[in-house]
Design a protein around this nucleic acid. Sequence first.
RNA 1: GGGGGUGUAGCUCAGUGGUAGAGCAACGGCCUUUUAAGCCGUGGGUCCUGGGUUCGAGUCCCAGCACCCUCACCA
Length: 571
Amino acid sequence: MASLLRIGLPGVQLPATIGLAGAAWRVAGPRHNCIMGEDDHYRTQRINKRNALVELGIDPYGGRFADVTAAAEIRARAELLNIASGERSELTGRVAGRIMLLRMMGKLAFMTIRDGTGILQLGFNKADLADQWPMLKKLDLGDIIGADGVVGRTKMGELTLWAGKVTLLAKSLLPPPEKWHGLTDVDLRYRRRYVDLFTNPEVREVFKKRSAIIQAVRQCLLDEEYTEVETPALQPVYGGAAARPFTTHHNTLDIDLFLRISPELYLKRLLVGGIERVFEISRNFRNEGISTKHNPEFTMVELYEAYADYEVMMERVEQMVSGAFNASAKQGVAERVTAIEREVARLEKEKDEAEAKAYMEENHLEAYRQAQAGITAGRMTTVFNGEVLDFTPPWPRRKYADLLKEYAGVSIADPGATREKARELQIDHAGKDDAVVINEVFEATVEPNLIQPTFVYDYPAAICPLARRHPEDPSIALRFEAFVAGMELGNAYTELNDPEIQEANFRQKVAGEGDETMAVMDEDYITALEYGMPPAGGLGVGIDRMVMVLTDSPSIRDVILFPLQRPAAPT
RNA sequence: GGGGGUGUAGCUCAGUGGUAGAGCAACGGCCUUUUAAGCCGUGGGUCCUGGGUUCGAGUCCCAGCACCCUCACCA
């Protein structure tokens, strides 16, 4: 991943400044409780420079800086002017951004700054800058500056804003990471995501895509006349999933509350209330393990549609993922191919064939080329963990029992054989219900093989207390899960709206589920069903995982800005 | 919780029981066309923590901590 991070623009950077509000900077002293050794000479030197700037009458933290032109806009406008190398144009502009690279050369200086749209080279010469030249020498990598100047090209042809005036907008007190490798320490990247973001362009791209994906999902549902709602995250009774909740306490009411593990039971209350198509993009909290696929808080879109069933929900999954694909991966694949090819070419030129080849393989160039070819042919192909995935609807629909037979070699109707298989797989099945054992065998044998997007439908009923039973086989529930890359992406039911069966299911203790059981009685939910809930299809899709597969991010922590971490040890 | 790996300068990383290293960054000097990257010089360390073995430990042993990967549980 480290080398991947360096695709694209060179990085550089510097952590944000903390706790320097008001006049505090005038007397800044050592900061305590810092994670790393930051009370060192790097910081001291920068504080000294900042103080020197104050002496020059400069506010080191700037202020409003109006009428800024984006770097990308400067680039686009310059493109139309056909400026020759070594020439300056008539085009003037004002830009602002963080100093990423800095090359001081006697009476001439170049900087590369970055704003939200990209990078731009600034050129300074002592004659043009006049009395601002001493100030320039007090600037460091990581500082945020503004510049006014005229657009031109250097002798080497690089687009450059030749600055006549420079404005300090924020002095940076901490040194940025190494400019070539960027910040690669995984722990530090998450703890100081702000540094990761301004250092590593690919990271910003992932989160821009995440935003675009969420927008696409929302738009898809709004287009289908869904209403977006917000339901409680603080719940007196938790439910809607098999998971352990976080507990908390409200002081005034003096009651214990749970952080929601799922919005399901509230959203279905809204079906009772007559909001017939309803969805929520909600944060859910599950007090369980952390892994590459699990963060204790994660984002789901859940939706419920009256008079529909789980087959309609399959179409909704395909619609949402298609929208999300077009909003993110489609462009991303082309960009990745270009970026990898560029880096391979550089390595071939500057290093050797072997290194270039290794890079090519490490970054799955062949898979990306295949995916791009697929897109050109009108398919929704992308790459995740080196595998080409094809999201083009319709996705394969496979019956749970058939897959169990295919991969585990056992019949869903033969608990004895299933237990035998469980023994073989070294799954502890003693004292567990048949359905639980079957599902554990399914998870062990089938799920890892579900690489391409696939709907698995008709689950054992005992593990689906909120789903309607199959009309012809009460041991089967009308439920499907969507899988991709061996990962569960979504889960859907034809919803159970019979209050008596629901109540019985809540009371049913399924052996082997441990603490993570869905059998938590919710009296008010039963009451709601007794008023009458329309038959409905319901669906939940993990947004984080969707972002993972659409951005080729191998860990869920790569798509969550601030994943949960143990607090840094005091120093 | 089990297994594997990592932890050395601000960052990225070398380091073979015997004086703690490189590149970038920083500081000083020179430099008007650089593209990660001019030249010369200088400074910079709780080698994750605590024990142990040893004449001597960054290196070997034990324990702990943090992070990553993986398995188990879950979405």
